[in-house]
C-alpha cells in the first residue's frame, strides 16, 4: 500500500567487501615504498646520545655509516670500543678504503654530497672518534654527521 516499504526484520544487509583488497593493497604499496630494510647487522652496541639542535639527514642514499661502540659479543671481543664498517669490525686504517668504496658506489655528480654519519655509542672515548675523523679528513670526506636522538627537552 505504502510506497516506501518498511523493512521487515531481515537483519542488516551484508557489507560489500569486494573493495577491501584494493584498500589493503594501497596501504601495502605505501609501506613497500617507504620501507628501508636494515642492510647491516650491528656488531657493536650503539646507544646514541641525545641533542636538541639536530638536522635531518636529507638523502639517505648519500649517507654512509660508520658505527663505533663496544662489541655486542663481549665474551669474544672484549668491551673496548671498536669500529664497524659495513658488516665487520675494522681498524682505523680501513676507513679511507671504506670511503673510497662508498664514493665509487655513487654517481659522479653525487660524490661531493656524500655524508658520513657517525653512529657512536654514548660512553665511547673521543680518542677513537678523533682518529676516525682524522682519517675522514685525509680521505676527503668532509661532510660528517654525528647521529643523535632528537630530544625536545634537554636535561638542564
Amino acid at each position: 500500500m505504502s510506497k516506501f516499504k518498511t523493512k521487515k526484520g531481515k537483519g542488516s544487509p551484508a557489507i560489500n567487501t569486494s573493495s577491501l583488497p584494493d584498500i589493503i593493497f594501497m596501504l601495502l604499496f605505501f609501506f613497500m615504498v617507504t620501507t628501508v630494510m636494515r642492510e647491516v647487522t650491528l656488531r657493536v652496541k650503539v646507544s646514541l646520545p641525545s641533542a636538541t639542535e639536530v638536522q635531518k639527514l636529507e638523502k639517505k642514499s648519500l649517507v654512509s655509516y660508520i658505527y663505533i661502540g663496544p662489541p655486542t659479543n663481549t665474551a669474544q671481543f672484549g668491551t673496548e670500543s671498536r669500529i664497524q664498517l659495513n658488516d665487520q669490525f675494522a681498524r682505523v686504517q680501513d676507513v679511507p678504503e671504506f670511503v673510497a668504496r662508498e664514493r665509487e658506489a655513487r654517481n659522479e655528480a653525487d660524490r661531493t654530497f656524500l655524508t658520513t654519519a657517525l653512529k657512536v655509542h654514548k660512553i665511547t672515548k673521543m680518542g677513537v672518534v678523533t682518529d676516525v675523523k682524522q682519517e675522514l679528513r685525509k680521505a676527503g670526506a668532509f661532510r660528517i654527521n654525528y647521529t643523535t636522538i632528537k630530544s625536545s627537552t634537554k636535561k638542564k
Binding site: I24, L27, L28, F31, M32, T34, T35, V36, M37, R38, A51, E53, V54, Q55, K56, L57, K60, V63, T115, A117, K133, Q134, L136, R137, K138, G140, A141, F142, R143, I144, N145, Y146, T147, T148, K150
Partner: peptide, 25 residues
Amino acid sequence: LLLIFFLVTTTMDVDSGITRRLPPP
C-alpha cells in the same frame, strides 16, 4: 599478510644529528 610484514619492517624515522664540516687536512 604482506601489509603486516612491511608494517613491521618499516623504519619511518629519519636519522638526524649534528652536521659539521671537517677542515681539509
